[in-house]
């Protein structure tokens, strides 16, 4: 406690960002330190788990130190420590979990293990201070494409998810195929702004009627087939057009299904979360479809869409307030379900 505020330290190391943040009363970001490893992993074309684990260890303590300093607090002011314990890369997760447990034990601070995906949803509590459940959440990231009903704090009911590739994965694969490189999401988003989304016909995969699931694995093959046939016909390939058309096929399906889910569950708000929630076309399409149905769409700012400690702190705060406690046996759970 400092100045009457309940202070939570959030620690996040599930993939390639070493992050720590101090959040006041579950809502106000006092500091948000994110040490990204993207420059290191770019040389390998993606995240290398062993290298990520090694870097997390070297950086975690300094990142925690900076989070406290920037929030202008000391260890004794912290009321709660929240840490991501899954899903993610096991070697990466365990650095955060080991550090959080050692800190909680050494300073006698309560500990909460947080599901990374719940954290992404909680990012919205930091952005929209009046937001309270119930709402419909759309979580789209490199590893996830999920529609989640949120009836109450810390209550997540998964209604649909991807059956193969996540949206972010599809972006990475197609970006590689058309030569845009890694990371695919932002690169396709940018190229698509200069392209025609109707230039190439990509299939919209809605699966069986009423399904809230997704399937994106066929899109890479479609992109490859298109490139091959154009090359054989001797036509020049417009990368921007391919990017725009592919992106449209992905985000149109996501936007329509999310709005459909909100309607069916009579939710008046859709809350976006995850790295792909930063995609400008997805944001535009879902806003258009939702407003036609009288549904409000809330999005966190880009810095809160990426992996960060603040969202973990917020989720931990609400778990703690609802009476949840985590003991020192906390382990990393790489395949943690929603």
């Amino acid at each position: 406690m400092k100045n009457g505020q309940f202070l939570t330290l959030g620690i996040e190391t599930s993939c390639d960002e070493t992050a720590a943040s101090v959040v006041a009363d579950g809502r106000v970001v006092m500091s948000n330190i994110i040490s990204s490893q993207i420059d290191i992993h770019t040389a390998y074309g993606g995240v290398v788990p062993e290298i990520a684990s090694r870097r997390h260890l070297e950086r975690i303590n300094d990142v925690i130190e900076r989070a406290l300093k920037e929030a202008d607090i000391e260890v004794k002011d912290i009321d709660l420590i929240g840490v991501t314990y899954g899903p993610g890369l096991v070697g990466a997760l365990l650095i955060g979990v080991a550090a959080a447990k050692a800190m909680a034990y050494a300073a006698d601070i309560p500990l909460i293990g947080v599901n990374h995906m719940h954290g992404h949803i909680a990012a919205n509590y930091l952005e929209h201070h009046d937001l309270e459940p119930p709402f419909m959440a759309l979580v789209v990231s490199g590893g996830h494409t999920e529609i989640v009903n949120v009836p109450a704090y810390n209550s997540c009911e998964k209604l649909g998810g991807t059956r193969d590739d996540a949206a972010g994965e599809a972006f990475d694969k197609v970006a590689r195929v058309i030569g845009l490189g890694y990371p695919g999401g932002p690169k396709i988003d940018k190229a698509a702004k200069e392209g025609d989304p109707e230039a190439v016909q990509f299939k919209r995969v809605y699966l069986e009627p009423g399904s809230l699931d997704f399937s994106f694995s066929g899109l890479k093959t479609q992109a490859l087939n298109y490139l091959n046939s154009e090359r054989q016909a001797g036509r020049e390939i417009n990368v921007n057009d391919v990017a725009a058309s592919f992106q449209e096929a992905v985000v149109e399906v996501i936007a329509n299904k999310a709005v459909d889910a909100a309607k069916r569950y009579d939710q008046k708000r859709i809350v976006m979360a995850g790295g792909v929630a930063s995609n400008s076309r997805l944001r535009a399409l879902i806003s258009a479809a939702a407003s036609a149905a009288g549904i409000e769409v809330l999005k966190p700012s880009p810095v809160l869409c990426t992996d960060n400690g603040a969202m973990i702190a917020s989720a931990a705060y609400y778990a703690y307030k609802s009476g949840e406690r985590t003991d020192y046996e906390l382990d990393a759970v790489p395949g943690l379900e929603f």
Partner: peptide, 15 residues
């Protein structure tokens, strides 16, 4: 190694 070293570093940092 990482579990032991991270635990030791963090305890030393806090204490």
């Amino acid at each position: 190694i990482r579990i032991g070293v991270t635990t030791a570093r963090t305890m030393a940092q806090i204490l």
